[in-house]
């Protein structure tokens, strides 16, 4: 089980936000981000309100702001795009520090930056305060199809196994003196993919057979169907 090593973004703490039901957190995140996205870029005061709401949530969660900011680098490519926007967008030209830029482009860049940053910080806050298991449970309570939640559960459970496998292959390649510099090395890397796919697929088959052997009928016992395990039942191995 990948249950105990959590995931890279989770920040362990005890706060009202950590213990809040995950489906409520997901709904709140989607609703709030939709609100932020729908806010016109020229309502500067509204973004101040959004930022205060987010800051309050971060304060309640006891997750350090630096922890979130460090991980906000995922949006860097779009920051670059936003910075270029005033120069490539059309519309009337205005002078900023002696450089003629597009007025609407500048406003759009501001909108893109502020909405993107608020959104990424809020998403990071959800990831930092919610364990993957709770997230899956939340999705289930939100009536996401059972099968989809199951696929997601398997993916999260085996994510570290598969990425570790890829890592081991990299170590094996490099310990044999391999360095990838240009497309001439692609055939080797592509064979890594091939091997990784075959191993993942075969692992999936083994997992499925192991589950069948343990009485898998097509659905995973969830919080609702799982009865509390008594010591007696646990010792005698009859959990279901």
């Amino acid at each position: 089980m990948g249950a105990d090593h959590g995931h890279r973004l989770h920040f362990h703490a005890h706060s009202p936000l950590h213990s809040a039901p995950s489906h409520a957190k997901i709904l709140a995140l989607v609703a709030w981000v939709l609100l932020v996205v729908a806010t016109p870029a020229h309502w500067f005061w509204a973004f101040g309100v959004h930022a205060v709401v987010l800051a309050l949530a971060i304060g309640v969660s006891r997750v350090p702001v630096t922890y979130l900011l460090k991980r906000a680098v995922v949006e860097t490519p779009f920051v670059v795009f936003a910075v270029l926007l005033p120069f490539i967008a059309t519309g009337e030209r205005i002078d900023v520090l002696g450089v003629a830029v597009s007025g609407p482009g500048l406003l759009a860049a501001w909108g893109l930056l502020v909405k993107g940053t608020l959104g990424v910080l809020a998403s990071l806050l959800l990831a930092a305060t919610t364990e993957p298991q709770d997230l899956l449970l939340g999705l289930q309570r939100l009536r996401v199809p059972q099968q989809l939640v199951q696929i997601m559960a398997f993916m999260i459970r085996y994510l570290d196994v598969v990425t570790d496998e890829l890592q081991r292959m990299r170590v094996a390649r490099e310990s044999r003196g391999f360095t990838a510099r240009d497309p001439r090395q692609w055939p080797v890397l592509a064979r890594t993919f091939g091997a990784l796919f075959i191993r993942s697929y075969e692992r999936g088959e083994r997992v499925h057979l192991a589950m069948l052997a343990r009485g898998y009928t097509g659905s995973i016992p969830t919080e609702a169907t799982r009865r509390p395990v008594t010591a007696h039942a646990h010792i005698h191995g009859s959990r279901r």
Partner: peptide, 25 residues
């Protein structure tokens, strides 16, 4: 009936493929 475990592992594979970088030069 293998959908959930198989698709889950293939999804993990797709995720991993996006982590392997190919040098372009």
């Amino acid at each position: 009936d293998r959908t959930a475990p198989m698709a889950g592992l293939v999804a993990a594979f797709v995720f991993a493929t996006q982590m392997l970088n190919f040098p372009v030069g």
